[in-house]
Simulated assay, not measured.
Amino acid sequence: MIIDLSGKTAIVTGSTGGIGLAIARGLADAGASVVVCGREAGRVDAALARLRDTRAGKLARGVVADVGTAAGCQALIAAEPEADILVNNLGVYGVKAFSDISDADWEEIFQINVMSGVRLSRHYARGMQARGWGRIQFISSESALNIPTEMVHYGVSKAALQALSRGLAKSLAGTGVTVNTILPGPTRTEGVTTFFTQMAKERGVSLEEMEALFLKENRPSTLIRRFASPEEVASLCVYAASPQASATTGAALRVDGGIVESIA
């Protein structure tokens, strides 16, 4: 299958590293003109430099904005009023016992993980609908279905994305605009590696041993029995953004390594 996104503009939020940068690279490899978005100018510039060797890397451009806020979303929209592909990848997580999750914690995670996607999708969907073609994606998580006890607020925010995605897909039925969620499992990003390196030090094991212990203790249903790479997640995102995926909408697409115990 040859995926050609030439002539398409793709915005990927939270794309200066990890899964977001891998998605941006995958879309640029397919020919899309990619907009990298992040909070820090230095990280945006570094991400753009890493995209220059892709098929459409010379077309990549960056926007510095904190789209976890309403003002940041407006800044991105002002800089890039139109897009054919929107990947709502921005998200945060943090381990905290349920009894310790404050109202402020709940508000923060919803503003960043959920409302950023609401605000941006509300704007960009209008143009996509008018043009009769578009792709909107929300990067959720297998934690939306397997709510982790160590960060309930994160799991709830990711479950909200699935409801949001399904509702938006129904609102855009028959328009040529598809809307889907992507559900990664544990993925070896820079942030995750840093987090697990600290856990490994605390338990006196190597990083590789810590990852294996985490899967055994917290995600025992994994079928690949390892962490995924950001590129493996990105491959599914690129397909869902393609013309070939025109009949895939309103779906929760898993790239979770078989963790979710369901055949539906």
Rank of each mutant, 00 (worst) to 15 (best):
S171L: 07
Y154F: 14
A46H: 00
M151P: 02
L253S: 01
M128F: 04
K201N: 13
A160F: 11
I259S: 06
S121Y: 02
E190A: 15
P148R: 08
D256I: 11
G250S: 00
N89W: 08
T193V: 14
V156W: 15
F214R: 00
T13F: 11
A247K: 02
V192F: 14
A49R: 05
N88W: 02
N180S: 01
L223R: 13
I3D: 00
L145P: 01
E209C: 05
F98C: 12
Y93A: 13
I112W: 06
S171A: 12
G185Q: 05
A252E: 13
A130Q: 14
A71M: 01
T249W: 10
L172F: 14
R126F: 05
Q162H: 13
W106R: 02
N180K: 08
M1N: 06
F227T: 04
R126T: 09
G176S: 06
G134S: 14
Y154I: 10
K201P: 02
R135L: 12
D4G: 10
E107S: 07
G72M: 03
Q162E: 12
N218R: 15
Q244W: 10
Q244V: 12
P243D: 14
A65C: 05
R135K: 13
A60K: 06
E82K: 12
V179T: 03
S15N: 08
L21P: 11
N146D: 15
G185N: 03
V87F: 11
Q111C: 09
L21W: 11
K170R: 15
L51V: 09
S165G: 12
P186G: 04
K58Y: 12
E150L: 06
Y239G: 13
A228L: 13
A56E: 07
K58S: 15
Q74Y: 04
G72W: 05
A46Y: 00
A56I: 07
P186W: 11
I112V: 15
Y154E: 05
T187W: 02
L172P: 15
G132T: 10
V34P: 15
G62V: 08
N89P: 03
L51H: 03
P184N: 11
K201T: 07
R39N: 05
S221V: 06
V92R: 07
S141M: 03
G31Q: 06
V179F: 00
R225P: 00
I85D: 09
R254Q: 06
E211D: 05
V179D: 00
V233P: 11
E232G: 05
G14F: 01
E208P: 07
A32R: 00
A234M: 08
T175F: 13
A169Q: 02
E108D: 09
S102K: 10
F227N: 09
E40D: 08
Q162M: 12
V35Y: 12
T193N: 02
G20Y: 00
K58A: 14
V152A: 03
G257P: 08
M210Y: 10
G258L: 14
P220T: 04
N146Y: 09
Q162S: 11
S229M: 11
L207Y: 04
L168V: 13
R52Y: 13
K216Q: 14
V92T: 14
T178D: 03
A125F: 06
S235K: 08
A130F: 06
S157N: 07
I147E: 01
G18K: 04
L223D: 02
R219H: 11
Q137T: 15
A173M: 08
P148V: 10
S206G: 01
I259N: 06
